[in-house]
């Protein structure tokens, strides 16, 4: 039952002339611990990733996560699937780092004191000890992404989907976040333009023009992408 399954999924958006298909019929089963989605801008990778926790609904077909249908059991799916966005600024919704992590913990820690202590513990686990009172506005790109990741993982998901989590980061922070993601015990699905990161995953999918063009080992798929980009 564990893992991610897409059954004949398509995604279309309405246009003036009718509709435009942004993901053609796709069937997949993702059971590997670390999966990368690579491909050109606008190819449909993010759409594919957003299907996994219901941020984008399938126009036709079915998305199943850990045996749960995303369309009908969205709440349960979102508890299992954490999502990290490209820009942490959009994801950090509370004024300070501690409050942002504490927001994620409201469901599991009803008592406020316990919640704040737990939030500080999460911050420390992510190397952000002492950042509790810092404004989320004042964090660097790497710190912000780390905090966004901490806020998502604090909810205890079994799967983490990350949509270009290193795109806005410098080389050092990009490596740091990449190492952290690849070392997680959760199943990871990462959309990325960082081919070094993709090569360290267990399976890579190349998405082009709304289709999974190639699916296989990192060496094969990344090699093909480098040769045809």
């Amino acid at each position: 039952m564990s893992g991610i399954r897409l059954e004949q999924v398509t995604v279309s958006v309405p246009t003036q002339d009718g509709e435009r298909r942004i993901l053609h019929e796709t069937s997949l089963e993702l059971t590997e611990r670390r999966v990368a989605l690579v491909g050109p801008n606008g190819s449909g990778k993010s759409t594919l990733a957003r299907l996994l926790n219901g941020l984008v609904p399938a126009t036709t077909g079915r998305v199943v996560v850990d045996g749960l249908d995303v369309a009908h059991e969205g709440r349960e799916v979102r508890r299992r699937v954490g999502f990290v966005f490209t820009d942490p600024a959009a994801q950090l919704v509370m004024p300070t780092a501690r409050e942002d992590v504490a927001l994620s913990l409201r469901r599991t820690h009803r008592d406020k004191t316990e919640r704040l202590v737990a939030a500080d513990r999460v911050l420390a686990d992510f190397g952000l000890a002492g950042f509790g009172d810092r404004s989320v506005h004042g964090l660097s790109g790497g710190e912000g992404q780390l905090l966004a990741l901490a806020g998502v993982l604090a909810t205890g998901p079994s799967i983490l989907v990350a949509d270009e989590p290193t795109t806005l980061l410098d080389l050092g922070n990009s490596r740091r976040i990449g190492d952290l993601l690849l070392g997680l015990e959760q199943q990871l699905v990462v959309v990325t333009h960082d081919l070094d990161l993709a090569e360290r995953c267990d399976r890579v999918l190349l998405v082009r023009d709304g289709r999974v063009e190639r699916d296989g080992s990192p060496a094969d798929v990344v090699g093909h992408y480098r040769a045809t980009a």
């Binding site: 966005f85 998502v152 909810t155």
Partner: peptide, 11 residues
């Protein structure tokens, strides 16, 4: 984006 982020966090 904020709506998406809240939705994704199950808030």
């Amino acid at each position: 984006d904020t709506g998406d982020a809240l939705h994704a966090r199950g808030i």
